[in-house]
Each structure stands twice: as structure tokens, then as C-alpha cells.
Amino acid sequence: MLPTLPERLPGLEVAARYRPCGAGLDIGGDWYDAFLMPDGAVALEIGDAQGHDVDAAAFMGQVRSFMRAIAAHEPDPGSVLTHANQLLVAMDAPRFASCTMLHINPGNGQITGASAGHVPLVCAHDDGSHDIRRLPGGPVLGIVPDADYPQETLTLGRDTALVMVTDGVVEGPDLALDAGLEQAGTLAAQALRDGLSAEKTADRLLDAALAMNHHDDLAVLIVRVT
């Protein structure tokens, strides 16, 4: 139910990974997506639907489809999240979902983004440093009627990789969220400094999360301006 990323997104290098939380039907509701917008911008999103079962996966598929459909008619991530939330509330959806959505202009690296109660972004730099970026936004989708989702604009330089993750990658029984974000930032920055591709960087983050034996599904989405 997860998308196949476009083979080529002009001006960008994008990689994604997903691992379920267990065998059998323990598949969870994490997702990612990347697609071209009508105006030539690239939309990226990552999210986490409540639950770890087939119903969670089905709900995830609905939310991802809603987001794509709305994005075809809305000019910015804040509006997409606002309308997605209104739709889920109107449907009296049985679950909720967190999500971060970005629109990237590959020509100048300008990013507009908003969050619906999701994990902060990690910005990794090729000098080995990193920082954590908490986007503005609002509550998780499907709970609060008429919620507002303000957005922010930033610039992604050629020396930086933007790392988007779900909470299973950076949080667990023995790892607090802030510490997990710092760990992910350190790993991504080291990979960037070592000249690894976005694909290899995503693998490194996923391997580190799996080594901690978290009982949650995992999703990673990494983007660089080329």
C-alpha cells in the first residue's frame, strides 16, 4: 500500500525505507510519499496512522490517498493538512494520524512545510553537524474540528540532507524522543560527511533503529538538493 517513488524527481535525490513492526499482520500505519505537484514543485510527506493492525494499514491508505487528491488542488502544505483534517473529522474517522508535509522548489531549494502533530525534522550537514527543526502546525489529523495548520518556509542547501522519520525510528522504551532525534542527526550527518547517498543514509538510520528492537513500524524519507 506504500507508493513507489518516482524514478526521477528533477533537482532532488530522494530515498525512502519502511519496515513493519513485526511479522504477520503487525504492519502498522506508517507511510511516506513523494510526487510532483502541478506547479512543478515536489511534495514530500511522512506520517503515522494510529494502530498496528490491518485496519491501521487500511486507514493509512485512505489518508495518503486523501492527501494526494487534496494536494492536486491546494497550493501549500498547510492548506492540504487543514482540508485533510476537515475531511477526516467529517467522516467521523475511527482513528487519527500525524503527518508532516513539505513542498520543495528544486530550483532554489526553498521548502514550505507544516506538521500535524508529527516528529520534528532533522537537518544533517556535510560538515558532520546537525540540527532539529520543529515545524509549525496543529494537532494530529482527524480529532479537532476547524484546526489550523500554519506553515514555515526554509531553504535546503546543497550541503544539507533533510531527514523525515516516524516515531519508531527515534523513540522507544529505552530511548526518549529528543535523544533519538539527536542520534538520527548524528548518524545522518556522518553519512553525509562520508559521501554516502540518500539511499545508504536511509539504510544506516533504519539499521540503527532495528538494532534497538523497537516494537513499532519504521519509516524514513531523506531528500537532498542536487
Rank of each mutant, 00 (worst) to 15 (best):
V63I: 13
R64Q: 04
S65Q: 14
S65E: 15
F66A: 07
M67L: 14
H73M: 01
E74C: 11
E74Q: 12
P75Q: 08
D76I: 01
G78P: 06
G78S: 11
G78Q: 08
T82S: 15
T82E: 15
H83A: 10
A84L: 15
L87N: 04
L87I: 13
V89G: 10
R95W: 08
S98Y: 00
M101L: 15
I104A: 04
P106C: 06
G107E: 13
G109N: 12
I111T: 10
G113Q: 06
A114Y: 10
S115Y: 04
S115T: 13
A116V: 11
H118G: 03
H118S: 09
P120V: 05
V122R: 01
A124S: 10
H125N: 14
G128T: 05
H130Q: 03
R133N: 02
R133H: 08
R134C: 00
L135C: 10
G137T: 15
G138D: 01
G138T: 02
P139D: 06
P139K: 00
G142S: 07
P145I: 03
A147L: 04
D148W: 15
D148K: 15
D148P: 06
Q151Y: 03
E152T: 05
T153Q: 14
T153H: 11
T155M: 05
R158W: 06
D159H: 13
T160I: 12
L162T: 06
V163A: 06
M164H: 02
V165C: 00
T166W: 03
D167F: 04
D167Y: 04
G168M: 02
V170G: 02
